[in-house]
Design a protein around this nucleic acid. Structure first.
Lengths: 218, 218
DNA sequence: CGAATTATTGAAACATGTCAAGGATCGTGG
DNA sequence: CCACGATCCTTGACATGTTTCAATAATTCG
């Protein structure tokens, strides 16, 4: 499912566009591997698998998922270029990770030096804050509000252009927002009819009225 | 809203019943204050307030909350005796914390030594895992499944007796599970009629059929 | 004991899910 | 490069779970 690139990459990661200042600090305390290429929908790590290394997204998109016993899926996070994922409490992954599109992932094996936790902690805390904010969205927002929150978050992480490029499909958005994919589709057309967004392409949305989206999000 | 206890408490925290092994490690790297007593519904820290110290629950219950612009509330977590809360990415609290009942909280001011992050990281990661699992509940479970998950979680954290004592009211449970308090009430009576639980008292539930609850939770 | 708060229950409204059909898009192989 | 099949997306009609509003009952607190 994945291919190691033949050339050894530079240690300085190329995933710089949106990289948080916490990442370089982490790189200094890990042994970054070469970039592995993952095909769409391929698994990066499985639920129940032994945890340990962290993962840096060089390009592409990753989803962190969990299933209920009867197969309903919740995506707890998407990760884009420059972001790190794979933190776990304990030795076992409680979630599984998949590549959404074609992605490049660098495995970061911790050097067991003293400063390791210092480097990881801020990233773990950022993930925690994100998850907590997502709880508010899932628990207390309606479909339109969820969608607005998602679009604004995506725009923010893509560098605040008003045109958003989607790597994930409606299905993924639905499972991230706790909706059905039909509802995702309906909300998008509703926002389009209200001239809040336009949809030049299935995987591209232009935000026409950002203020309206921000009002929606609350 | 809170009263400092006159006597200086021992550094060895008394909140041992459910204490995680990670907590003693943390205590060794902080300057624990005396226990502060909080009255029901009093604020421990506010959203937007400067973050820094951590908080150890000695007794009682704490809720971590966030409001939408129009006043809907999401409780992202409850914390019981022996648990630590107050982690933040950055310098500012993104959530606010309140005492649910009468609680005793010990402020842990970090000593700025090298091992601080090592002590905090496991606790932060546990909070992260909890939040992620809560995302599945909020996003993909129906009211009965949410309730089952909540009851089993509570039972587990109270030491796995089949009788659960609630410190929070229906309203709090609703805001934790992303439901209305009426629905919480209805689900409880439904479970009672199905002989899955009994409700000897408004703030006490006995689990009669744990397997049924586990099936529900998934 | 009485007032205020909290919890339960019912009826109706509403948002979202489910099921089903038709369109668009994408990838592949001729 | 086009045509085909498969996948994904959109839209509609209907079913359903949950919320909302309202009234009553239970509990807590002074």
């Amino acid at each position: 499912m994945f291919i190691q690139t033949g050339f050894r990459q530079q240690t300085n990661s190329s995933a710089c566009r949106t990289m948080s200042p916490d990442v370089p600090a982490l790189l200094a305390h890990t042994c970054p591997s070469a970039v592995s290429l993952y095909t769409p929908n391929s698994e990066i790590f499985a639920q129940g698998e032994r945890a340990g290394p962290l993962y840096l997204v060089e390009f592409g998109t990753v989803r962190i998922c969990r299933l209920t016993a009867d197969g309903r899926r919740q995506i707890s996070a998407f990760h884009f270029a420059g972001e790190v994922f794979g933190f776990e409490y304990g030795t076992e992954h409680h979630f599984y990770a998949e590549s959404v599109d074609s992605s490049g992932i660098r495995v970061l094996r911790p050097r067991l030096d003293d400063m390791m936790a210092d480097a990881i902690l801020p990233l773990a805390l950022k993930s925690l804050t994100r998850a907590q904010e997502h709880l508010l969205v899932l628990g207390r927002q309606n479909a339109a509000e969820k969608m607005a929150a998602f679009l604004l978050d995506l725009a923010d992480r893509q560098g605040n252009t008003s045109v958003i490029d989607f790597s994930m499909q409606r299905n993924d958005i639905a499972d991230y927002l706790g909706l059905s994919f039909e509802t995702v589709s309906r909300i998008l057309t509703r926002l389009k009819l209200a001239k809040v967004i336009s949809i030049p392409h299935v995987k591209q949305i232009e935000m026409l009225d950002i203020e309206a989206l921000e009002d929606l999000r609350g």
